[in-house]
Simulated scan of single mutants.
Amino acid sequence: MAGLLMRNVAVLGATGSIGTSALDVIARHPDSLRANVLAAGSRVDALVELCRAHRPAHAVIADENAYAALRDGLRDAGLETIPHAGAKALAELAAGDACDTVVAAIVGAAGLDSTLAAARAGKRLLLANKESLVLAGELLVRVARDAGATIVPIDSEHNAIFQCLGGCEDRAEVARIVLTASGGPFRGRNRAELANVTPAQAVAHPKWDMGPKISVDSATLMNKGLEVIEAHHLFDLPGERIDVLVHPQSLVHSLVEFIDGSTLAQLGLPDMRTALAVGLGWPERIASGVGGLDLRAQGRLEFEAPDLDTFPCLRLAYGALAAGGTAPAMLNALDEIAVSAFLQGRIAFLDIPATIEDGLAALPVTPADSLDALLQADARARDFARGRCGSGRTA
C-alpha cells in the first residue's frame, strides 16, 4: 500500500479462524498495517500468545472474569499491552483512537455492540459478523452511511459481490446477484440420511476450517440463508434478486448478473485471506499470501440448485426476509439456540430447522423500528428455542 499512512487495525475475534487469517495478512505488511487492538472471548492463553507475536497496544477479553488472568499473562510475558475486559471496553476500543480499521469477526449476536460502535465512529469496517446484519441490518447500514463508515464484507461470497460490483452505485443496472454455496458436508444426502448425524460429522466441513457454530450453519445451509439476508442489506436488493447456487468446488465465490446480459464472477482459492486483503487494502490490491488459481489443475466447475426439502433452513431464511420486521432477528436467535443444543447433544440435527420453523410460526413479527424492539424479539425467540430444545432429541 505504497504512499499510505500506517493503518491501525482492531481484530475482534482474534483467536478464531477469521482473526487468525486477518493477522496473517497484517503481518505481511508491517510498513502499512498494524494490529493495534486484539480481542477474544475467553481464551486468555491464546490471546496472550497473539500479543507476543503482534505487540498490540490493547488486548480485550470479553469474559470480565478473565481480566486478572489476562493482566497477569501480559505482565508475565513482559508486554506493555494494556489489558481490558468486557463488552463495554470492547465497544469503546472499536470506536476509539486506537484503530481506524475494525475486523468484526466475533461470532454471534455478541459482536453487535462493538460492530455498531465502530460504524458510528466512521471506521473502515471489515464485516465478518453475520448477525450484525441479520439482527440489525437496516440500523447498521444507516449508521455507517450517516457516519461515513466504509463497510467491506469479508464473507467470501459478499466480498466477491463487492468486487464484482466494482463501484456500481445504480442497483437498477443489476439484474440479480448469485451467492454460491459449497453444499456443506451433507450435500447429496436426503432427510432420512440426516436423522442421526453427529455434531462431529456436522462440523467436518469439506472446504473451510471454521468454528463449530458456523460449520453447523453450513451443514444446514442456514449460513447461506443468513448470507441472503446480509446481501439484501449490504447491496440494497430484494430477496427476489438474490439467488443461491450450490458449487462444491468453492472456487467461484459469487456472481453478479447485469441487465445487459453480462455476468461477472469472482474466483479464487478457498482462503479467507483474499477477502481480508481486499478489505484491508481497498481500493488498492495487496498481497494476501494466497496463490493464484490454476483452472487447468482444478478441472470441472459444477453448479446445482440447493435442495430446499432436505435443507429447509435456506427456505426459512428467505421467508423471514420476506416477512421483514423482527423476523430475521428471530430466525437468527432461534438458530443460535438450536445449533448450541445440537452441539451439546440435546437435540437431533433435523431438530434445528424444526425449532426455527416452529418459532417463526409461533412468535409475532413486529416492526424493527428500534434496537430495543430487535433485542426484545431476539430474547423472545431465544426463550422459545430453549423451551423447544429443553426436552432433548425429538427428530
Rank of each mutant, 00 (worst) to 15 (best):
V11H: 01
V11F: 00
A14K: 09
I18Q: 02
G19S: 05
R28V: 02
P30E: 01
L47Y: 14
R52F: 12
P56Q: 09
D63A: 12
E64I: 15
A69I: 11
R71T: 15
L74C: 12
A77E: 10
E80D: 11
I82C: 12
L90W: 07
A91E: 06
L93E: 04
L93W: 14
G96S: 15
D97Q: 15
C99T: 01
V102I: 00
A105C: 02
I106S: 06
A109T: 10
L127C: 04
L127E: 00
L133R: 02
V134H: 13
G137L: 03
V141L: 05
D146H: 12
P153C: 03
E157K: 04
H158D: 03
F162T: 10
L165K: 02
A172W: 14
I177W: 15
L179K: 09
G183T: 00
G184Y: 00
P185N: 06
R187E: 01
L194F: 00
A195I: 10
A195W: 07
N196W: 14
T198K: 12
T198H: 05
Q201F: 02
A202F: 00
W208C: 05
M210K: 14
G211K: 06
K213Q: 13
K213R: 09
I214F: 11
D217S: 00
T220N: 03
G225A: 07
E227R: 01
V228M: 08
F235P: 15
D236A: 14
L237N: 07
G239A: 12
E240L: 08
V244S: 05
V246D: 02
S254T: 02
F258C: 05
S262L: 09
A265K: 05
L267P: 08
M272E: 08
T274L: 10
V278S: 00
L280R: 04
G281R: 00
R285K: 07
I286R: 01
S288L: 10
G289N: 00
G291K: 03
G292V: 03
D294P: 04
L301M: 07
L308I: 09
G319E: 12
A322C: 15
A327C: 03
A329F: 10
L331T: 09
L350G: 02
D351G: 04
P353E: 07
P353Q: 09
I356P: 05
D358E: 15
A362C: 11
A362P: 06
V365I: 13
L371P: 12
D372G: 12
A373E: 09
Q376T: 08
A377H: 15
R382F: 03
A385V: 15
A385P: 06
R386D: 08
R386T: 10
G387K: 06
C389G: 01
G390V: 01
R393C: 08
